[in-house]
Amino acid sequence: MNDLFDDLPTPDVGWYPDWLTPARAEQFLAQLIGEVEWRQDTMGTPAGRVALPRLTAWQGDPNAVYVYSGIRNIPQPWTPAVAELKAAAEALCGAQFNSVLLNRYRSGSDSMGWHADREPELGPQPVIASVSLGAARTFDLRHNKSGVVQSFSLKSGSLLVMKGRTQAEWRHRVPKEPRVTGERINLTFRWVTPRAASRSCS
């Protein structure tokens, strides 16, 4: 049986469950609720456009434009708490980030469906640093070929780093959890190819 489990695929991730102290995580959560310009985006479905089941924001360098699910994200300037978290994540990951997607899950009814971050502007093997603040939520990774699922409880102050071929070979989600009543903010720091550079190479 051990040999069988040894053959199961595992995602290329770094997991730091206690990256921030509880006090620092609580402080950052309060800061982000107040300083970030949150919005309610919509996405296209066969039945028409519907509201995303969460609030979002996109911050970054001026040319870090990002398009996903038909939503064109023009970066807002870095706010103080986000910039502080970005610098700390860069130091740990040994990577540079020029943008961040912030998701605000107001309760367990807010969610994110199965997807992979495979947009061309992220490159073939992106490093994505995911910081969680507030209520703990389940994060599932599902292998594309085998269907193997690996789950993490993303508690407040944790950091999950997806890298290598994780986006190419796995999908991930944050499922609905009706029993969760608290609020959660998630920041996924990343590097996107600057739009000006993309145009000059085309």
Rank of each mutant, 00 (worst) to 15 (best):
D140N: 13
A129V: 08
P62M: 14
G60C: 07
V100D: 10
W19S: 03
P80K: 10
E119A: 09
R49C: 12
N103M: 00
A83K: 04
P9Q: 12
I33S: 10
E84S: 10
G134T: 02
L141D: 05
A95P: 09
R72C: 12
A87W: 11
M112W: 10
W58K: 00
E90Y: 08
A91H: 09
I74A: 11
L29D: 00
V127K: 02
P46V: 07
A87D: 12
L102S: 01
R142I: 05
V131T: 06
D61Y: 04
L8Q: 10
N103S: 08
A64V: 07
Q31M: 11
T79R: 13
L8D: 06
S132D: 03
A136S: 15
N63Q: 15
S69I: 00
L92Y: 13
D41F: 04
S146D: 12
L20C: 01
R137M: 00
Y66Q: 02
S109G: 11
P80H: 10
Q76D: 15
D12R: 14
W19D: 09
D110Q: 11
A89C: 14
G94F: 09
A81F: 01
D110R: 02
S146W: 13
S132T: 06
V50N: 03
R49N: 10
D61R: 06
Q96P: 05
R24T: 09
V131H: 11
L55P: 00
G44V: 09
P17A: 07
L20F: 05
V82I: 13
D41A: 09
S99N: 05
N98K: 03
A135R: 02
E90S: 11
T45E: 12
L122W: 13
V127F: 01
Q76K: 15
G147S: 07
L102F: 01
G147A: 04
A47G: 08
C93K: 14
S130N: 12
A129D: 05
A136K: 11
L8W: 10
G134Q: 10
R106Q: 07
V82F: 02
M112H: 11
P53D: 06
G60T: 05
T42I: 07
D18P: 01
D117P: 14
Y68I: 13
N73L: 13
T138Q: 09
P22R: 10
A88N: 03
Q59F: 07
P80C: 06
P124E: 14
A89L: 01
A57Y: 00
P77W: 05
R142L: 04
H115S: 01
S111M: 12
Q125S: 12
V67L: 12
T56W: 00
G123T: 03
P17F: 10
R142M: 08
T10A: 14
A135L: 01
G34S: 13
L133S: 01
G94A: 12
G147K: 08
I71D: 01
A136W: 04
D61V: 08
G134M: 06
T10F: 15
P120C: 15
R72F: 13
R137W: 00
G44Y: 05
I71H: 02
M43V: 15
A30H: 12
M43Q: 03
G94K: 10
A51W: 08
R118G: 13
S132C: 06
V50R: 04
L20A: 01
G70W: 13
G94P: 03
